[in-house]
Amino acid sequence: MKRRLRVGLLWHTFGHPNLGVDALARANSALIRRAAAMAGIEIRFITLGTPTRPGIDVPPDVEIGPHPSIRQALRGRSRFLAEVRNCDMVFDIGEGDSFTDLYGARRFAFQAGTKLAVLATGTPLVLSPQTIGPFAAPHHRALATSILRRAKAVHTRDHLSTEFAEALGVRQVKEFTDTAFALPYEPPGPKGRPRIAINVSGLLYAGGVSMRLDYRALTHSIIEAFSAVGAAEICLFAHVNGTNPPDTDEPAIDELARRFPQTTRIQSFTDSTAAKTFIAGADFVVAARMHAAIAAFSSGTPVVPIAYSRKVNGLFAGLDYPHFVDAQSDDLERATTTILAAFQQRQQLAQAVAVGRRLAEARLDAYVDELALLLDQVVSRHPNRIHEPA
């Protein structure tokens, strides 16, 4: 008898223009797959949430499922609900940081509504490691609290989210780390001259986040400073693609490449694995997108993240890595000095990265152990439905 499970991947989007979301989908499904193998379970996935673009490479055990539609649900013909009912378990990663009302009521409604739909079907809901909150509106906080308390398990990726969830009275919360640390990549080949890779955030460059640091001025400052040294190739790369500013990084990078012709504009990547492979070949990275920083860190590359929100500070502080710019408190002079000093001390940064990587790997090992237990519990409770002839 072969033990089998059909697992829903809620808000896991393969091929998302934000490569961080793509990285979460690929890495978390790989970790669930690893846990299933440990438990002796054959697993099949179906995605639930943002649709995948055509032509995207998707693992063979992943089926691309439906996008939730309120109109269909009201008509009683919701394919989303039908697919949820056919799942034995649903893992929801919330695209990393979307379970909050920071991005507006509509986005919160979609995040909360889909979670409530899963709970309403009786399908076990597990929140995979992600940022939880904040919820500014009292009615949003009350609804989120109800969802979190009813979930089978709640997993966070940083201590701030853990403390926030516990303050809401969530007892089944466990802290691990960002699953994107497990994203695979191709090891770099032989290197020539040193390569400085600067990940530019179009959102921050357009002033889309309220913070003390003048990010546009900082970007100009470090490009000019590295150009004056002249010993390294300066590469500009995106980690959010597409044509919808300010969410995309590409227009800002194109502008910078015209302004600083001595830089190399890296062609945009089709998926997060390709991006991480490039990042792994750099000698030093400045990353404004959190998952670009994670790609560097988890491939052993010295990196200075630009921490513009608590999700970034909490994640890297939790890995004993203090080498980041705090965009909410640092001014231009301090941020520039931090980055240039880090470049000069990149061997020491590499040692700190190695220590942090071991911490992240240990936490992901613990996460896989937890997943294996959860998957086994579902199989054990429904033996007639799950156990089929091989």
Rank of each mutant, 00 (worst) to 15 (best):
V379F: 06
L374I: 15
A327P: 05
Q344F: 07
E370G: 00
D330N: 11
L371R: 13
A390R: 05
V355G: 00
V353D: 02
E388K: 05
D376F: 04
T338D: 07
Q351A: 11
L340S: 08
L373S: 10
H382Q: 06
I339W: 07
R358P: 00
E361G: 02
L371G: 10
A390S: 04
L332F: 10
V353N: 04
I386L: 13
R363W: 04
Q377M: 12
T336L: 09
A354Q: 09
R385M: 00
P389M: 03
A362P: 01
Q377Y: 09
L340N: 02
L375M: 04
E370N: 03
A342E: 07
L359Q: 13
G356C: 08
R346D: 08
E333C: 08
Q328L: 12
L371A: 11
R334H: 04
D376G: 15
Q347P: 00
V379R: 08
Q345C: 05
A354M: 01
L371K: 11
Q348K: 10
Q351D: 02
H387P: 00
A341I: 03
I386G: 00
R358A: 05
A352K: 06
T338F: 06
R381I: 04
D376R: 12
A390F: 00
G356M: 02
A342F: 02
T338V: 12
D331A: 12
R357K: 12
R357E: 07
Q328T: 07
A390P: 03
R346G: 03
V355I: 14
H387M: 07
V353C: 03
G356Q: 04
S380W: 06
F343C: 07
F343W: 15
H387N: 12
Q377A: 15
T337K: 03
P389V: 13
L364P: 02
A362I: 01
A327E: 03
A360R: 01
R363D: 10
Q348D: 14
R357S: 06
I386R: 11
L349E: 05
A335P: 14
E388G: 03
L373E: 12
V379W: 04
E370S: 13
V353S: 03
L371S: 08
T338A: 08
T338C: 14
L364S: 08
L332A: 06
Q328I: 00
A342D: 09
I339Q: 10
D330V: 02
R358N: 07
V368Y: 11
A350I: 01
Q328Y: 02
Y367N: 03
L332M: 13
Q345F: 05
P389Y: 10
Q328S: 11
E333A: 15
R357I: 07
E361C: 06
D376W: 09
Y367L: 10
L359R: 13
L373W: 07
Q344S: 14
Q377N: 15
R381D: 14
R357Y: 12
L340G: 00
R357Q: 15
Y367T: 01
P383I: 03
Q348F: 08
A342G: 04
S329H: 13
N384H: 14
D331T: 09
A341R: 15
E388D: 08
Q345I: 00
H382D: 12
L371W: 14
R385I: 09
A390H: 08
Q377P: 02
A342W: 09
I339G: 06
Q347M: 05
P383A: 11
R357W: 07
V378R: 06
A372K: 02
A335N: 12
A360Y: 05
